[in-house]
């Protein structure tokens, strides 16, 4: 149990702090440049890849923080106001999709197998359903009051877009990054491949 907690929390040395910060900055940049708006508070963005990467390196809690801080910063620099409900929702999603090390996918050691991809895809669906189907709508209603249907609708749109990006773009990227890291580790010249 202790070990699980450790994997969840990650090791908080300077490297972790910096990596989370860089992750948050990257999140902010992607949100502002790479986003394609689809609905009022929702954009089709590749930024959600960031918590996956941070999670794979340092665990879900760092992923949560990278995502939450990144989202906050994106809101602050994007100037579309500051929305706690969405930031927290995103953070929760970051936590869930950042669970990678818990099921053995270690991108920076080059480990990402088909089984990991399947589990990852499931966490994406579950994570989005939970974050935007439960957390964000509840917070929205609690913070700003109002119509649950609309909030759900908006959350639904956001959730679908996120899931799509996370699965369709995320899995190839995770494979690509894992491959890069795997080969980078032992630089043995593969003579037999030479023709």
């Amino acid at each position: 149990m202790n070990k699980v907690l450790k994997t969840l929390l990650g090791v908080w040395n300077t490297k972790t702090v910096v990596a989370i910060a860089i992750g948050a900055a990257l999140f902010g940049v992607l949100m502002n440049f790479g986003g394609i708006p689809i609905y009022t508070n929702t954009r089709l963005t590749t930024a959600m890849i960031v918590p996956v990467i941070v999670g794979s390196m340092f665990g879900p809690v760092p992923a949560f923080i990278a995502c939450f801080v990144g989202n906050t910063i994106a809101d602050l620099i994007g100037g579309w106001g500051y929305w706690f409900d969405w930031s927290i929702g995103n953070g929760v999603l970051g936590f869930i999709i950042g669970l990678l090390p818990l099921y053995g996918a270690k991108i920076n050691e080059g480990i990402f197998k088909p089984l990991h991809a399947v589990i990852y895809a499931i966490t994406c669906v579950v994570g989005n359903a939970f974050a935007f189907g439960v957390i964000t709508p509840l917070l929205t209603v609690a913070f700003y009051g109002g119509e649950l249907t609309i909030t759900f609708l908006q959350a639904f749109a956001g959730g679908i877009a996120n899931t799509a990006v996370l699965v369709i773009i995320g899995i190839p990227i995770l494979y690509a990054l894992a491959r890069r890291n795997a080969r980078g580790r032992n630089l043995v010249m593969e003579e037999e491949k030479e023709e």
């Binding site: 890069r180 795997a182 030479e194």
Partner: peptide, 10 residues
């Protein structure tokens, strides 16, 4: 050319 099938990271 001899390395065309090598991974970039190698």
């Amino acid at each position: 050319w001899p390395m065309r099938n090598w991974p970039v990271s190698a």
